[in-house]
């Protein structure tokens, strides 16, 4: 399977051997660290869920790490990110404190939303992370609104709106596409096509499964990217962001990816075979793939072990913090419903 298979609209220079021309060794090593952090964090979150420390819905990002990390690398200060409920990876990639994210998962006072949001509803203006939205597709309109803000203020920033192959069939997505192109709003739509909208495969839910073409009738350019290749993601992301930032309007990136776990923790994923999952894990894993590139670039096993240990420590600390932090004070029940109006 071609790891860096490019979409038909792509003009990228990515190749299938060694270090991509677009990113250097140091950046690849950072990619490795950030992707590994997401994977270990999510594995731990799954564990805490199993222990009953995390409740409700919990959607893990394992398998899709290259997208959040690759895209983050081309974001500049003031750019915004917004996504759906499979959001932990995006938050970590954006630079949110793993402790605060994990503590929100366990519903503690130290969580990023003080325990009032949970897995699907976290935000951090500092890093430009605007959620974390639980309604499928809502973030696409909201993200286009963030772009409307950038356009209105002329601040040169771009909004990155992430959504899945399932959300791509929602009506408001196309309402937003239309307005974004009509008004040339600086937004990059990143479709994380992990092949399954919960239990329904794209073949069973989409009349056009090439999601990068979904903007054609709005004249929005799009390209398909190997979402399992972080360098390819970063390169396509840079191209898309430049398009949006330079006033040419929205751009669609369809990231071909795969989630290893079920839709949420309670999904046994009977709609696909174990062989299918194993095939992806053994041939397309974004982290293993990156290790090969790092090896080719001359990064030693010892260097990687240092990163592995560091990530392991960070995740362990986050889990401990999330486990031991107090629950929110009952007085928090009635806070943050309204803001006081200035007199």
């Amino acid at each position: 399977m071609a790891r860096t298979r490019k979409g038909e609209a792509s003009t990228g220079k990515a190749n299938d051997t060694g270090v991509n021309a677009f990113v250097g060794k140091d950046e690849l090593l950072k990619f490795y660290r950030d992707m590994l952090l997401i994977r270990r964090f999510e594995e731990r979150a799954g564990q805490l869920y199993g222990m009953g420390l995390i409740g409700g819905f919990c959607h893990l990002y394992i398998g899709q790490e290259a997208i959040a990390v690759g895209m983050q690398s081309i974001k500049v200060k003031g750019d915004q990110i917004i996504t759906g409920y499979r959001d932990h990876g995006h938050m970590l990639a954006a630079g949110m404190d793993p402790k605060e994210v994990m503590a929100e998962l366990t519903g503690r006072a130290t969580g990023s939303s003080h325990g009032k949001g949970g897995s699907m509803h976290m935000f951090d203006i500092e890093t430009g992370f605007y959620g974390g939205h639980g309604i499928v597709g809502a973030q696409v309109s909201l993200g286009t609104g963030l772009a409307l803000n950038n356009h209105y203020r002329g601040n040169g920033n771009v909004s990155f709106a992430y959504f899945g192959d399932g959300a791509a069939n929602q009506g408001q997505v196309y309402e937003s596409f239309n307005m974004a192109q009509l008004w040339k709003l600086p937004v990059v739509y990143v479709i994380e096509n992990n092949q399954y909208a919960m239990g329904t495969s794209v073949e069973r839910s989409a009349s056009e499964t090439a999601f990068h073409k979904r903007g054609v009738s709005f004249r929005i350019p799009g390209e398909q990217v190997d979402g399992m290749d972080v360098a390819a993601v970063a390169e396509a992301g840079a191209r898309a962001a430049e398009h949006a930032r330079s006033g040419q309007g929205p751009y669609i990136l369809e990231m071909k990816t795969y989630r290893y776990r079920g839709h949420s923790m309670s999904d046994p994923a009977k709609y696909r075979t174990k062989e299918e999952v194993d095939e992806v894990k053994s041939t397309r894993d974004p982290i293993e793939h990156l290790r090969e590139k790092l090896d080719a670039a001359g990064v030693t096993e010892e260097q990687l072990k240092v990163v592995d240990a560091d990530v392991k420590r960070i995740v362990a600390e986050a889990a401990e913090f999330a486990r031991t932090s107090p629950e929110p004070d009952p007085s928090e029940l009635y806070t943050d419903v309204y803001l006081e109006a200035a007199q």
Partner: peptide, 12 residues
């Protein structure tokens, strides 16, 4: 769509 755009702009 435009209600969502409005809310997004308000969030920013």
């Amino acid at each position: 769509g435009f209600a969502g755009l409005g809310v997004g702009a308000a969030m920013a």
